[in-house]
Design a protein around this nucleic acid. Structure first.
Length: 895
RNA sequence: GCGCGAGUAGCUCAGCGGUAGAGCAACUGGUUUACACCCAGUCGGUCGGCGGUUCAAUCCCGUCCUCGCGCACCA
């Protein structure tokens, strides 16, 4: 029921209450038995360890807007939420805590005890981000919340591993991988970030074996790996070194004779044109090694320190320490020629932010399934990417797709469902490769463990977290045991996926392939890519820079609705977003503006039945209703194109400018003692119609505030929720003839324009605040009858209609759309000031005349431009010419 | 190196063939039937540079400059 509004909107008093009421009433439930057209989104699962940052706010606000809009279109909506287990991030957080608080490593605890700790940690902190999403107002169906380590979900992981293994797409092999010496695990190519580094290029010389004082010079950035050199290589076409091929060089330490070989890969232009070949520590070198059957000498330990193979003085030394030491040693031996500054790109571990080591190790790899289907679906727009340009990025990656290293040397995650027979385990572990044809008596690959587990040992590794996320759209809707479910039948494929372009390969591409592989169809129809939020200086938001505001602080300060609205106004249309707190302030201000406009309405009397009295509608009422109608169609277009900034701006402009600044102000006279009851009722009804419809339109963006006003104003019946109310399809102006609407809008536009002129005149003469001024109008239409509203808006006491009025010299005047307007100033006439003012306007007008004349004087324009453009230009010419003539006359009259 | 995107008012950004727009900031003036988280007014732009297409270019094309991003990578 209607309830009085306070003078300022306090979001903190309103928002949490509404969220609880929605939850209690089960408003977010996606009903698989519902009859409405289905609309579904799966949330990009945030890390269970994570806390909300602005990127999440942006992303989830968009999803919430889409979900709420769909509900109000009468659709059956499912927004399915959840979190992922974030293997490396979570494990290292718990390890860190363990080290700090108990001085223990995970190995001290052992696998099972450690995992128990992780689960404890998850129980304690895992709900944080979910609660933060709730505070934002996200209308997720929490009854369906999923976690990638849930039992059901985990079964899926084993199942797909087994499927892919049996299909021959998963294999184990000894390969060069990206090794993170800090997290002590292999990483996929996607988890390596190339960063330019200021390095040094070391020029060193190796002696040629069997020759008197002959040396060969080699340039390298990594002298610490020279102990692992097993050859040096030159380009076969490089004449400088042709005679060396087949000979040997002496590796300085540990001293050893290594062959000089020829390989096309070597660029004669780079450095000295000679490459030291370290097959164990460089991807390219590894390949050269394979081709030439070179020895692989791994001189590193997994943690990035050097081992005994590097020699006793290097063993145990950290890799960058060893770099210095190796250079010093070469120097001492007289084999360091020079050192140059050099900038090169070095791969860093995305999570641990340390340089990765290319390292040979035994890992599981996946050849992607359904590549063709995925590539085609995006190429032919069955799955639409927005903005479209990401299609290209996707296609490019799909085209050069590499096998995916899916094993991780971690404990937290889905353990690989492979068991080795105990007595064979060592031998199998070291086997160069392993795949389908090796399975059988000694290797068990299955969802369930072998029947006699005591005779088997399980592969210790876990799977990449993304190996679980790529199943998200369907594995959240049915278990691996079920053929289908009602939920899946109703809501799969999902409609929209909202995510960042930074995970287009990590997640989006893989989900598409998984969708085709296990569901036989695409997982979503549209992908909307948001972008990265930066600060005003264009830097990425990050904790270490301290430029990343805590969204919860912002919500406390400005309200969730204010944050949502503010962020949407700067939402990306394809590029990065520059975050600016002023925008959030604007969001809050807008909420307050709406609140107060509702409050004003409330002060004028009880709510009406919202049946427009067509015969009594003023031109201003018709105008605002027409603008509301226009707003609805503009909004529909903006939604169609996922233009969130535009739709927010449309809502803002309509309400603040069109409704509050103009319409609401124009009605103030309707509530005076002299106004008729019919007039008053017509205005109140118009206001109610506009406000009610506007609350519906705004609701997806500002759910709490709109729901509150809906209730407090008394629009609902006290039982239903605005969020579940369908927006009527019928236009608010359906009962008014089009010609009448057009005529009213034209007239109102003229009056508003003239009001602007009048205000301007007042301000120019320092009377901006005065209300008792008298205007004289020489009207262009003798039937002019809108004096009252004109005076309300322009704040004047009298509008004296005097056709053909001739002013005294120096009386300020302005040309308006409704006629020539004068502002008589008793005894205050300043002829010079008025002349200057008019002259200024004349100058501007003449510039316009000149522009338009030039255009019409151009024969090419007149003969080739479309008729409509020429007509319009001629009209404009007349308009400016008339105006200039009148201004000239006015100036002449001043003497 | 290849590809993508951006450069419009002091700031954050819209507009993308036919009279350059908003909000903030600045300045002037204001308590008026809600709102100072407010109201009214003003100032402010060779739309990154240079060419081209067109009757007409901020918008299309080419090229260059600056910045950001992605991919690849020469040790």
């Amino acid at each position: 029921m209607a309830e009085e509004l306070s003078s300022g909107y306090i979001p903190g008093d309103v928002e949490p209450g509404w969220y609880n009421r929605w939850i209690d009433a089960d408003c977010f439930r996606g009903n698989e038995e519902g009859t409405g057209e289905p609309y579904s989104i799966v949330i990009p699962p945030p890390n269970v360890t994570g806390i909300l940052h602005l990127g999440h706010v942006l992303n989830n606000t968009i999803q919430d807007i889409l979900a709420r809009r769909a509900r109000m279109e009468g659709k059956e909506v499912l927004w399915l939420p959840g979190t992922d287990h974030a293997g490396i991030a979570t494990q290292s957080k718990v390890e860190q805590q363990l080290r700090k608080e108990e001085k223990l490593s995970r190995h001290d605890l052992g696998r099972d005890a450690f995992l128990e700790r992780v689960w404890e940690w998850k129980e304690k902190h895992g709900g944080i981000i979910i609660n933060q999403l709730k505070r934002l107002g996200c209308s997720c169906d929490w009854s369906r919340e999923r976690f990638t380590m849930d039992e059901d979900y985990s079964e899926w992981i084993s199942k797909i591993f087994v499927d892919l293994f049996e299909e021959g797409l998963i294999y184990r092999g000894k390969r060069m991988v990206n090794w993170c010496p800090k997290s002590l695990t292999a990483l996929s190519d996607e988890e390596v970030i190339m960063k330019p580094q200021r390095s040094k290029l070391y020029y060193m010389r190796y002696r040629i074996a069997g020759e008197e004082d002959r040396w060969v010079e080699i340039a390298t950035t990594r002298p610490e790996t020279l102990m692992g050199d097993s050859a040096i290589a030159v380009n076969p076409k490089d004449e400088r070194y042709a005679d060396l091929i087949g000979k040997s060089a002496i590796r300085p330490f540990p001293e050893k004779e290594i062959p000089v070989i020829a390989d096309e890969h070597i660029d004669p232009e780079f450095g000295t044109g000679v490459l030291k070949v370290t097959p164990a520590h460089d991807k390219a070198d590894f390949e050269i090694g394979q081709k030439n059957d070179l020895e692989i000498i791994d001189v590193f330990n997994p943690d990035g320190t050097l081992n005994e193979l590097a020699g006793p003085e290097f063993a145990g030394m950290e890799r960058f320490e060893a770099r210095k030491k190796a250079a010093e040693k070469l120097e001492e031996m007289g084999q360091l020629v020079k050192v140059e500054d050099y900038e090169n790109n070095v791969g860093f571990s995305e999570r641990a932010d340390v340089p990765i080591e290319p390292r040979i190790s035994m890992q599981w790899f996946l050849r992607y399934p359904c590549q063709k289907e995925a590539a085609e679906a995006v190429a032919n727009d069955e799955i639409r990417f927005r903005p479209e340009r990401w299609k290209k990025t996707f296609a490019f990656w799909m085209d050069g797709i590499q096998d995916w290293c899916i094993s991780r040397q971690l404990w937290w995650g889905h353990q690989i469902p492979v068991w080795y027979r105990k007595d064979m385990a060592e031998e199998l572990k070291n086997r160069e490769s392993l795949d389908l044809k090796d399975a059988g008596a000694n290797i068990h690959v299955g969802v369930n463990p072998p029947a006699d587990p005591e005779n088997w040992v399980r592969d210790e590794d876990v799977l990449d977290t993304w190996f679980s996320s790529w199943l998200w759209p369907f594995a959240t809707m049915r278990s691996s045991q079920e053929e289908s479910t009602q939920t899946l039948a109703k809501f799969y494929p999902t409609a929209d996926l909202v995510t960042g372009p930074d995970i287009i390969f990590f997640w989006v591409a893989r989900m598409i392939m998984a969708g085709y592989r296990w569901q036989g169809e695409l997982p979503f129809k549209n992908v909307f890519f948001t972008s990265i939020i930066r600060d005003r200086k264009g830097r990425k938001l990050s904790k270490s820079l301290g430029n990343s505001p805590d969204p919860l602080d912002l919500i406390d300060q400005f309200g969730a609705d204010g944050v949502r609205f503010g962020l949407m106004r700067i939402a990306p249309t394809g590029t990065d977003v520059r975050y600016d707190e002023d925008q959030i302030v604007e969001g809050r201000n807008f909420a307050n503006k709406l609140w107060n406009a509702a409050r004003y309405r409330q002060m004028q009397g009880p709510i009406t039945d919202r049946q427009l009295p067509v015969a009594d509608l003023s031109i201003y009422a018709i105008d605002i209703l027409a603008k509301l109608q226009k707003l609805e169609s503009n909004l529909a277009n903006a939604y169609e194109d996922y233009r969130f900034n535009e739709l927010t701006q449309l809502l803002y402009d309509f309400w603040w400018s069109e409704y509050c600044d103009w319409y609401l102000e124009s009605t103030k006279g309707d509530f005076s003692d002299t106004a008729s009851e019919a007039q008053r009722q017509a205005t109140l009804t118009t206001m109610d119609v506009v406000l009610e419809r506007f609350l519906m339109l705004l609701h997806p963006v500002m759910p709490h505030l709109t729901e509150e006003l809906w209730e407090k104003m008394g629009f609902g019946d006290g039982e239903t929720f605005l969020m579940l109310t369908a927006v009527p399809e019928e236009s608010v102006l359906a009962s008014v003839p089009d010609e009448q609407v057009t005529a009213a809008q034209e007239q109102v536009a003229k009056i508003y324009e003239a009001v602007g002129r009048a205000r301007n005149l007042k301000a120019e003469y320092g009377l901006g605040a005065k209300k008792d001024v008298r205007f004289i109008l020489d009207p262009s239409d003798a039937a002019f009858a809108e004096s009252e509203v004109f005076l309300t808006l322009a704040r004047g006491a009298e509008l004296d209609l005097q056709p053909g009025f001739e002013a005294e010299k120096g009386v300020p005047a302005a040309l308006t759309a409704i006629g020539k307007l004068f502002l008589p100033l008793d005894g205050l006439i300043d002829v010079d000031a008025e002349r200057d003012r008019l002259q200024k306007e004349l100058t501007k007008t003449e510039a316009e005349v000149k522009k338009v004349n030039a255009k019409l004087a151009n024969e090419n324009f007149v003969s080739r431009a479309p008729e409509a453009v020429i007509t319009e230009t001629k009209e404009r010419q007349k308009h400016w010419q008339d105006r200039a003539a009148e201004l000239e006359q006015m100036i002449a009259n001043l003497g």
